[in-house]
Design a protein around this nucleic acid. Structure first.
Lengths: 288, 288
DNA sequence: ATCACTTACGGGTGACGTAAAAATC
DNA sequence: GATTTTTACGTCACCCGTAAGTGAT
């Protein structure tokens, strides 16, 4: 059988035209490459080159062989990455989320439930989530609504309530106990993170007159929040996760509109229910 | 890069289930195969097997890798044969014939005109010949009629006249000088070779009441002809080629029907005219 | 003189086989 | 006890690099 390194050598020569140049790119000496080409011809029992005393070039057969060799090398590389990806997929729990809240919290529980598995998380719009669920990219997805079809089911798995995050000096801070509505704060300028999934459209719609200063990351948001007096957002979930926020001196005022509460649903392909059985029962027992 | 021998080892294990059995089929020792499998896992950075102390089996990833490896091995084998065939085709003049006469004579001239080329000859029915011409299987084909289309041309290149071959004692031997017609011999039993291309249908049609005792080879025919009194066939071409037939004591009587003369045409793809220029001009100057 | 390829020669990596150990049936 | 896999060890093949040789530009 002809080994791969010979095919690589042939392709390199095809690409670079001379033995010297090809050898350099292969990080081998030129005589070594010369011998490899001879060996390849010998193994094939076919002449691949037109040789003059100090010049060598592929003949018709050689060009044909090189192009086929290139295809083989590609399939081998494809195989290698495919095998690695497949192995990785067997050891990875991949999930898609519609908002950052569950995406921050659920992986913690997943790693505890499946200590040997890697956990990968992505935030996407809900259409992309469902597509990824179908294609197997995601093992499950967290949506802001129920979903059902012939292949998939969903079940409620928790909720998240939005809060205004205000400095104590803010006039609306007086409503600390009774809560506020979106319309009461409409027109104010807010600081918020850009990647917040479905929260984005929701706040835009509920407070059409407000302006939103977007930050790239939670770190950036945190810095701005601490340094400015602008109102921001929080949620029961983030307040619980980041107790450090207490240091910010902000007070959190619940938003009383029903739209300010997202009811999350975990959607999963029926065929994967077995694989995720532990996760599903955990979710059902411990709403987020 | 992962060498082919590792993929072969993986496939062998996939096929035979145990290292011992696979090693035996690979003609290597079992520890060598064990090491190869470890090396393959190492190169891929992935575990391919479920191992117990004295048992080893492919896991999901391993099965997947084996099936992809099998595809790669197949493409390499395909490449090897394709390269060899292509090389061979570059050094071979391949022709198809509708009758044995030209197929016996033309290769002699071809090897003289192209001393470095191999010459391959096949006899087929005319439909198969034209298909083979189109696909490049044949460089040219010899037909019993003219042929022309957008890709191919043909030109007359000789003829062959059929004779009856009779023992001198046969009543019809009296017609030695004036010739005979098919109908005059209709009803007789003939000895003839089975592989005679279009001659076969022709004689059947012209002498529907005759029986034909078929022989597999020219040698068999020759033996039967010498040993029996049955009439047989010859042609100007075979008479010329096998002067030894004079020893058979047979006399050859020309058949006077116009159907007893085949007018051969050499058909060739237009794009190959250049490659076969010497052959074409030779044929046009020296009708067969 | 320089460049490009081939041949010659010596060295080191690594794949192999044998032998032995461990574990399961 | 037989079978199967892994580890250990010594051997040898073979691929490599350096050096020298040949011919062309």
């Amino acid at each position: 059988m002809i080994e791969i390194y010979l095919l690589e050598a042939l392709c390199a020569f095809y690409d670079y035209g001379t033995l010297s140049a090809a050898a350099e790119h292969l990080h081998i000496s030129q005589p070594a490459l010369s011998r490899s080409m001879q060996k390849l011809e010998d193994l094939l029992g076919v002449s691949l080159f037109d040789r003059t005393k100090n010049r060598i070039a592929l003949n018709e057969t050689g060009k044909m062989a090189a192009s086929m060799a290139k295809r083989i090398l590609e399939s081998e590389n494809d195989m290698i990455t495919a095998v690695r990806n497949y192995d990785s997929s067997l050891h990875t729990l991949s999930a898609g989320y519609c908002t950052p809240g569950p995406m921050m919290e659920m992986p913690l529980h997943l790693t505890q439930l499946y200590p040997k598995m890697k956990v990968s998380s992505e935030m996407e719009d809900e259409e992309t989530l469902l597509k990824g669920l179908k294609t197997g990219k995601y093992g499950f997805v967290i949506l802001s609504h129920a979903y059902e079809d012939e292949d998939a089911i969903s079940f409620p798995c928790g909720s998240e309530s939005l809060y205004f995050s205000l400095i104590p000096a803010h006039p609306a801070a007086l409503f600390k106990d009774q809560g506020l509505t979106f319309s009461q704060m409409n027109g104010e300028t807010f600081v918020m993170v850009s990647e917040i999934g479905v929260w984005h459209d929701l706040t835009m719609n509920m407070m059409p007159d407000s302006k939103f200063v977007l930050q790239d990351s939670l770190e950036a948001l945190s810095a701005v929040v601490n340094a400015s007096t602008l109102p921001a957002f929080a949620s029961d979930l983030t307040i619980r996760l980041f107790r450090s926020n207490e240091n910010s001196g902000r007070i959190f005022i619940p938003i009383t509109d029903p739209e300010a509460v997202l009811h999350y649903h975990c959607a999963i392909l029926k065929k994967n229910i077995g694989k995720y059985a532990r996760w599903i029962s955990y979710l059902k027992e411990n709403y987020i």
